[in-house]
Computed example of a mutant assay.
Amino acid sequence: MTISVRQVKAARALLGWSQADLAKASAVSYPTIARLESDDGAGPIGGRQDTVDKITKALQDAGVEFTNGGQPGVRLRGVG
């Protein structure tokens, strides 16, 4: 799955998570989360694939669904 920096930020916002919260939940260092999020583009999140996978899994485990296709976004499971 390919996700964007904007989707990660939106997912954190839905959960009320800080970058530190995401770092703890994903077992990815805080500096890595901050560096990845410093690129505010709509393109795919950069970094090693295993790091992206850890971030994606942590957010999904917390209830986030990533919507892709024509209108990429995020939502909480069971909402909408």
Rank of each mutant, 00 (worst) to 15 (best):
M1C: 05
T2F: 08
T2H: 09
I3C: 06
S4M: 14
V5L: 02
R6E: 09
R6H: 04
V8S: 10
V8K: 07
V8P: 14
K9P: 02
A11W: 08
A11Q: 07
A11N: 08
R12L: 10
A13G: 12
L14C: 05
L14N: 06
L15W: 06
G16K: 04
G16Q: 05
G16P: 08
W17T: 04
S18E: 07
S18N: 02
Q19L: 01
D21N: 13
L22G: 09
A23M: 11
A23Q: 04
V28W: 01
S29W: 03
S29K: 07
S29V: 00
T32M: 01
T32L: 01
I33L: 02
I33H: 05
R35W: 10
L36Q: 12
E37V: 00
E37A: 03
E37F: 02
S38L: 02
S38I: 00
G43Y: 05
P44G: 15
I45T: 13
G46H: 11
Q49G: 02
D50N: 10
D50P: 09
D50C: 03
T51C: 02
K54I: 00
I55A: 12
T56E: 11
T56S: 12
A58K: 11
A58V: 01
L59A: 02
Q60K: 15
Q60P: 00
D61L: 08
D61S: 12
D61F: 01
D61P: 00
A62L: 11
A62Y: 08
A62G: 05
V64W: 10
V64T: 11
E65F: 00
F66N: 13
F66V: 15
F66A: 13
G69D: 03
G70H: 03
Q71S: 14
P72R: 13
G73H: 14
G73I: 07
V74A: 07
V74T: 10
R75K: 15
L76M: 15
L76E: 04
L76I: 15
R77N: 01
G78I: 09
G80K: 10
